[in-house]
Each structure stands twice: as structure tokens, then as C-alpha cells.
């Protein structure tokens, strides 16, 4: 930890913005998980002291502006192509830490091919996958991970499998691939959950240093605006409805 307890106006400083986050108000909706995931990710990068060796990729989606907040070198990618862009970066800069930060529409619909093949090649990158079962940025349309029966702006009567197919458990698919080294599903709806996510990110970047292969972290998330709920309601709804289908926990952990 670089955090050093300092005294401010006679009070001990116990919590502050990591230097790896910029001093910029985030555009995310109140209660959205993105802000917490950004912070946790950047805390790890600060604590590992790798700000100067980290390159991030944020594609189209709510988090396309991640480079406004993450104080590291970043590339914005076309919709669905983040893991291909990250592959290009990592192949050229194999000693850097490279991650992509993708939503469900990006990673599991338009970018499914790139996601699967990147993990299948075992690219030494970290994929952070925010699954909130909805397209947030475009206004709440059905995502590949939208639950059956879930109402979105393009499933106004609820998602029906006969018409719209089934929610895609892409993390389970990725876990099957030999190139995927560490696959886990996390959340950030409680402090305990956020700490677990932080540990998973730390592990992933340590594995990346050892060239172990693709590390893949799904973060089951809420979308208060898209789900049309208060932040508290959305977290309760997530635990009740999302967790049974997308249960938090490790899907693939390194042996030994």
C-alpha cells in the first residue's frame, strides 16, 4: 500500500483517491457498479506500482469513457473488439500489463468471436466483464445476458426464449477453453464483495506477470437506470434474480 496515514486538519487520513484515478466526476448513474469496479481496479494498479506499465482498453458501452477516470495509458476500441485491440497491444508490449474492460453487449454479443478466440489463444491479458444484463448506454435494450422474463426496452413483454433465445453464460464457455487460466465471477454490491473482486484482480495481474494465459473476471452488476429501480432495489433484485443464474464464485482456478 502506498497509502500513508497523514494528518489533515488534525484528523488522520484513512481513505483517499488513488493516484491512478483522475480527479474527474464520473458520468455513471448513481448506484452503478462501474465506479466501484474502476476504483478497485485502479487501487490494485497503484498498489502493485505498475501505473507506468499498464495499458487499458475500453470499448463502446457505458464504460467507453473509462479513460477519463483511469490515470493510465488507454485505448478506446470499436464495439466488440476490445480483446482484439488488447491482443495487438500485448503482442507488441509483452512486458506490460494489459486489460480490457467490457460490458455484456460488447463482450457476449457483438464481440463473442473475439472473446472466445482471445481466451482460446491464451492471450496474457485480463478481461474485466461487467454483466448487468442490459445495454445501459443506448437506453436499456436487451443484452445477451438478459434473464428470461426480464423487461427491457426491446423486450417490453419480457424476454421469451422462443423469440429471443436464452441468456448467455459466456463466462462458463470461456472457462472451458484451455487458454483461459483463471476464470471467476464476482460482484461489488457489498464491501466484502468489492474486497473479493480486488483479490481476484490482484491474482489476475500476478498471473499475467507469469504469462499464465487469459484471466477473465465477470462482475455481476446492477443497472439502476436501465432496470428502472433505485440503487438499493437494484442490488436486491440482482441478488434475488441474477445470482441464481450467474452465481458468484470461481469457475476455473489454477491447479496447485
Amino acid at each position: 500500500m502506498e497509502h500513508v496515514a497523514t494528518s489533515v486538519d488534525g484528523m488522520e487520513l484513512v481513505y483517499e483517491r488513488p493516484s491512478t484515478l483522475t480527479d474527474t466526476p464520473m458520468h455513471y448513474c448513481p448506484g452503478c457498479a462501474h465506479g466501484v469496479v474502476h476504483r478497485v481496479l485502479m487501487e490494485v494498479i497503484q498498489e502493485m506500482g505498475i501505473q507506468d506499465r499498464t495499458v487499458g482498453v475500453a470499448p463502446v458501452g457505458c464504460s467507453v469513457f473509462a479513460y477519463n477516470y483511469m490515470n493510465i495509458d488507454m485505448q478506446e476500441a470499436a464495439h466488440g473488439r476490445a480483446s482484439a485491440v488488447a491482443t495487438g497491444i500485448k503482442r507488441i508490449l509483452p512486458d506490460r500489463f494489459v486489460f480490457s474492460y467490457q460490458g455484456d453487449g460488447d463482450l457476449a454479443a457483438i464481440g463473442t468471436g473475439e472473446t472466445i478466440h482471445t481466451a482460446n489463444r491464451g492471450e496474457n491479458i485480463l478481461v474485466v466483464f461487467i454483466n448487468n444484463a442490459i445495454y445501459g448506454m443506448t437506453g436499456g435494450q436487451m443484452a445477451p445476458t438478459t434473464l428470461l422474463g426480464m423487461v427491457t426496452s426491446t423486450t417490453p413483454y419480457g424476454r421469451e426464449s422462443a423469440v429471443m433465445g436464452f441468456p448467455l453464460k459466456i463466462t462458463d464457455l470461456v472457462a472451458q477453453l484451455p487458454g483461459a487460466y483463471y476464470v471467476t465471477r464476482q460482484s461489488v454490491h457489498t464491501p466484502t464483495a468489492a474486497r473479493k473482486l480486488k483479490k481476484a484482480i490482484r491474482n489476475s495481474l500476478e498471473y499475467q506477470k507469469q504469462n499464465r494465459g487469459t484471466c477473465f473476471i465477470e462482475v455481476v452488476s446492477n443497472c439502476p437506470s436501465g432496470w428502472k429501480m433505485t440503487p438499493r432495489e437494484s442490488n436486491e433484485w440482482m441478488e434475488k434474480n441474477m445470482f441464481p443464474f450467474y452465481p458468484p464464485g470461481d469457475l476455473k482456478i489454477p491447479r496447485g
Partner: peptide, 23 residues
């Protein structure tokens, strides 16, 4: 570095990433 991509879409976006990384 030579990599056979899974599609032309992936290939040009790998080019994007590598070019952005200075190659």
C-alpha cells in the same frame, strides 16, 4: 509478431491496438 486472426474484423483491430502501442 505474426498472428493469424479469427477474422478480418479481429485482424484490423489487432492492427489498431499494435499501432496505438507504437508499432
Amino acid at each position: 509478431v505474426v498472428l493469424q486472426a479469427e477474422s478480418e474484423l479481429a485482424a484490423i483491430n489487432m492492427v489498431y491496438g499494435a499501432s496505438g502501442a507504437g508499432a
